[in-house]
Design a binder for these strands. Structure first.
Lengths: 365, 365
DNA sequence: TTGTAAGCGTTATCAT
DNA sequence: ATGATAACGCTTACAA
């Protein structure tokens, strides 16, 4: 019955109803040419299989002359491993941290896996995407987007190892690498408060960014516990323009320049800074401090030198894939949640130490 | 014989030698539960197959209750379509144009395909990557990296539609979307020359960037044909620091400030500009013009407002996938090469018009 | 070490 | 409209 298969494979049978292509080269073709069995061919492509030098050579020669490459679909059907890793990332995250995707890609390749990429225009699209993920029987997934509890549970049910990237799962049994955004935000507020800032303003990130919500929550939390006046909170959407717009709204609402503006990310901080300096003539940091989050490359440029919080994103990406790798090898293992700390990059857009009083007076004048 | 399969699928057979997972849910399980044949189940998941309402409902209900999702590997084995599109992109390109990857991803998803991503640390890695591409039987590929003629030919031999992104194939029969880098560079040089710049300097991109080479060639070409003095050429690697370093080298070699510095991309232009203004006290554009390529978001920020050339990358990405889509539908079609023009963004870092003489004198003073 | 044969989970081609 | 049944191209016992 398989014989029939072998016969059907002679070059004479050319006409096929398949739309485009001429027949594909299979391991049978190679076997025929090399004068060995099909399984011998298969073994030649399996590292560490028992094969004699002689046949290996014959097979490889035949394979090369036919341009033969094993078919991953057929292989994964029988081995039940696709060697695919899904990466699900929101568009936002990709645009602001292109480095992350590059790192994930490198690390996944290093593990001998391929990367199936899904980007989300809106986080709400994740349902459809997951359906694709299941179809392709990925061996694991790194997700930098919001999953519902039910969605996380489905990974468990389908035995697909999952590592969340920068999302804190409510559900306990989920692996994650994450940066404590709220704690970072608290740290920043504390440092600014110590340096004497009292009236804060927050230019918040978009509502569908989990990271933005955590940052805001951390700020509000610490401001409250320090007994400082309620901050002005305006919303932005992480882009340059909303930094400038946000600052204008803040000043409008407050009737004056706040002591410190904390922006949900560095892009907005840069926008805010540019508007303050170039359009409103505000001296930063003398009259007002500006701080952001992320420590982008641009944040360190001479024209900005933003005071910001750096997340070790590269390390996080590397570790996420390493974690996933272990999960894929020996499935199971207890849920691990690896936390990373942001650290403060003390740029020059915020006063972080108490000035001599008269300096402060002069600046205000 | 298939019967055996059906039997083997009763819940009683639980023990399997497969490492981790319990048995997967297959269409046989669904068929059994719904009380129909396996092929009926298959048809239910094929859009536009002939199925009665009644059975469709029964099957879907069973499928949902079992969490059944068709297996893409098995499907692609028989249909000879993986519904995968490979995207091969150099790390460089991804970091500087994250938008491109996002756009490609969206468009590929819109065509009902999934994106298999390969990023290249070095362009030399492409050989290994291609091997993976063949294994996974992708339906098509978008490549933003350098391919040898032989490599392009292999796409043809294997009947995998290919669209090059921003690489001009020497080979004729290859589809591509590209931006004429050399022409853009010539345009820029001409405009600067018209405005009176004579001594040019070039801060070149890295040697393994095809785009950088084309840009440089275009500049040199036009400078020569205009009979202008030979430019100082120093090499950079597309990052911020090499912009500043490049400027210092240029001034070192020239013994004075050049009339115009053209940088291989905007990041270097920004670095050059920052160093000129903040560290060397050079007035831009009064004493020296600075220009770049790409029109990044950052190039438009108030602190910079770089004079630069914009490539319609978003449109290019969209069109590349559209082209690929057509190729995948009705295979074949004549090789199309879609060219796009860069257009000049007249920022404020370069003089583009002839100043009144005495203004020029004042500036120099 | 090698060959034989039984799947892996689908879709496609037939009859019915 | 539905159900048998034969591929698809591979890996992996098992036997030789």
């Amino acid at each position: 019955m398989r014989k029939k298969n072998t016969v059907a494979r002679t070059p004479s049978t050319t006409s096929r109803a398949i739309p485009g292509a001429g027949r594909r080269v299979t391991s049978y073709d190679v076997a025929l040419l090399a004068g060995v069995s099909q399984s011998a061919v298969s073994r030649c492509f399996k590292p560490g299989a028992s094969i004699s030098q002689a046949t290996h050579a014959k097979v490889m020669q035949a394979a090369i002359s036919l341009d033969y490459i094993p078919n991953a679909a057929a292989r994964s059907l029988i081995t039940r491993r696709s060697n695919l890793v899904a990466v699900i990332i929101s568009n936002l995250a990709n645009l602001y941290y292109p480095q992350v995707l590059s790192d994930l890609s490198q690390q996944i390749a290093r593990q001998g896996k391929r990367l199936l990429l899904f980007t989300l225009e809106r986080e709400a699209d994740i349902g459809k995407v997951l359906c694709d993920v299941w179809q392709y029987q990925v061996d694991g997934a790194v997700v930098a987007a919001c999953l519902s509890d039910e969605q996380m549970a489905e990974f468990g049910r389908r035995d697909v190892p999952l590592v969340l990237f920068n999302r804190s799962p409510r559900e306990h049994a989920v692996h994650a690498v994450l940066c404590d955004q709220a704690e970072a935000a608290r740290l920043l507020v504390s440092r600014l408060a110590e340096a004497g800032h009292r009236q804060f303003a927050i230019i918040d990130g978009p509502g569908d960014s989990a990271v933005a919500q955590e940052r805001k929550a951390g700020m509000l939390d610490r401001l409250l516990s320090l007994g400082l006046p309620a901050p002005i909170v305006v919303s932005g959407n992480y882009d340059y323009a909303s930094g400038g717009r946000g600052l204008r709204k803040v000043i409008d609402r407050l009737g004056r320049v706040p002591d410190a503006v904390i922006c949900g990310n560095d892009i907005m901080a840069i926008g805010c800074l540019d508007t303050a300096r170039h359009q409103m003539g505000i001296q930063v940091p003398l009259q007002m401090s500006v701080a952001g989050f992320d420590a982008l490359d641009a944040s360190g440029w001479l024209s900005y030198d933003i005071t910001t919080l750096r997340q070790p994103v590269q390390k996080m990406a590397t570790d996420a894939v390493a974690m996933l790798g272990e999960l894929m090898e020996r499935r199971g293992g207890s849920a691990e949640r690896r936390r990373y700390c942001s650290y403060l990059v003390e740029g020059s857009t915020a006063r972080l130490t108490v000035e001599q009083p008269y300096f402060g007076m002069m600046a205000a004048a």
